[in-house]
């Protein structure tokens, strides 16, 4: 099992739409709108590191209104 946290920077004010789209992605456990220099943080739990890359780079970045993402893999 790999747990990862994805920091998402938006370029739209429609934060709820982004959060809802992100939460429907398979492997994403939760997503929250946060204050600060990123707009949403999502937690994913998947089988392999490759699946993390698929969620962050392909699926989340493919959502309209996502500017960029930064992914952190949990080590514990």
């Amino acid at each position: 099992m790999v747990t990862a946290f994805v920091m998402i920077k938006a370029n739209t004010g429609e934060a709820d739409r982004l959060r809802d789209s992100i939460e429907t992605i398979e492997g994403v456990q939760s997503a929250h709108i946060v204050a600060g220099d990123v707009d949403i943080i999502a937690k994913a739990q998947v089988e392999t590191p490759a699946a993390v890359k698929n969620i962050a780079a392909t699926q989340i970045q493919g959502i309209d209104g996502v500017e960029n993402t930064q992914t952190y893999i949990a080590m514990d």
């Binding site: 370029n11 004010g13 934060a15 204050a35």
Partner: peptide, 11 residues
């Protein structure tokens, strides 16, 4: 600019 909407709604 886009953050105006987000903070008005959530903060």
């Amino acid at each position: 600019a886009y953050r105006e909407e987000i903070y008005r709604e959530y903060a």
